[in-house]
């Protein structure tokens, strides 16, 4: 069994136009499920043509409300991203860290995450 899970964004979304929050949520759900199982994950953006902050906020930004920065840094990797898309993802990650630095938001997101886990 491979030690690293590969999430192909193109395959999850169904095409290379990754712009909606709902599609980002589908990617997020796969990443979050693998992180909960303590797996290493590579998210491949191969063949992705368009990306928005809304998509990346849902796919990756919200992970910071559920997992520690350390867990994300150690377990998550992105690949096959163009430079401009990496720059956008970096902004999204910085915004997410800032967003969840508000203790109320972080607490609420953690509670929601625990409810999700219980529902699994």
């Amino acid at each position: 069994m491979s030690s690293q899970i590969v999430v192909m964004v193109f395959e999850v979304v169904g095409n290379g136009i990754c712009v909606s929050s709902d599609d980002g949520q589908k990617v997020h759900d796969q990443i979050a499920a693998a992180l909960r199982e303590k797996k290493k994950i590579k998210v491949s953006f191969l063949n992705v043509e368009s990306l928005t902050s809304a998509f990346l906020n849902a796919a990756i930004g919200q992970l910071y409300g559920k997992f520690s920065e350390e867990t994300i840094r150690e377990s998550l990797a992105v690949a096959e991203m163009e430079q401009e898309d990496l720059a956008l993802l970096k902004r999204v990650v910085e915004t997410a860290k800032e967003y969840f630095s508000d203790p109320e938001r972080f607490k609420k997101a953690r509670e929601d995450a625990l409810e999700e886990k219980d529902a699994d």
Binding site: S21, T52, S53, Q62, K66, V92, T95, K108, A109, D112
Partner: peptide, 18 residues
């Protein structure tokens, strides 16, 4: 700046700034 009206589990507030 970092202004956003978002309050749920998904962060936001970047779209219009970009």
């Amino acid at each position: 700046g970092k202004n956003t009206t978002k309050s749920g589990p998904i962060p936001g507030g970047l779209g219009l700034k970009l």
